[in-house]
Amino acid sequence: MSMPLKNLVISLVMGVIGGAYLYLSLQLPERSIQNVPGPSFFPLIISGTILVLAAAMLVKSLFGLRGKKLMPRLTFPGLTLAVLGWFALYLAVLPYAGFLIASVPFFAGLMFLCDRPRLVPIVVASILVPVFLFYLFRNGFSILLPAGLWM
């Protein structure tokens, strides 16, 4: 993806974010003390700044895009999405299963995505490392990690 196109994406996304933020800032309750900046004062400055910068970026990207092909060749980030999806699934299970039980398949999955090692190292490491960390934090540092619904 070319830099002007990246800049175009940034300007459009930031423009939308800035607009939404401006709208939400205007909904904030105002205080009636005269000449004293209220809760919406700072957010309004920031939303204005974002919109101005996004507009500047839009102009810059449009100048950069002149005479260039607009549609980029995109590659599907399959592995990235797999890693993030695996994280999301783990976080969904964690409050119910607890750190120990949820972390074993999470660890094994990440190991598999990393290097696809053989089964025995995956099984051994994905059990030993979470157990070690759980007891290290619980007993060594007095940090109680989530134990799950049944512990």
């Binding site: 976080l91 990393c114 490392v129 960390l133």
Partner: peptide, 25 residues
């Protein structure tokens, strides 16, 4: 050190680090 061991451990430590700040999911 095998990457397959290091990266998942870092992943778990990130989760512990963010949870332990305020004990919040």
């Amino acid at each position: 050190t095998p990457r397959a061991l290091m990266m998942p451990t870092i992943g778990l430590l990130c989760i512990i680090g963010s949870y332990a700040l305020r004990n919040s999911f």
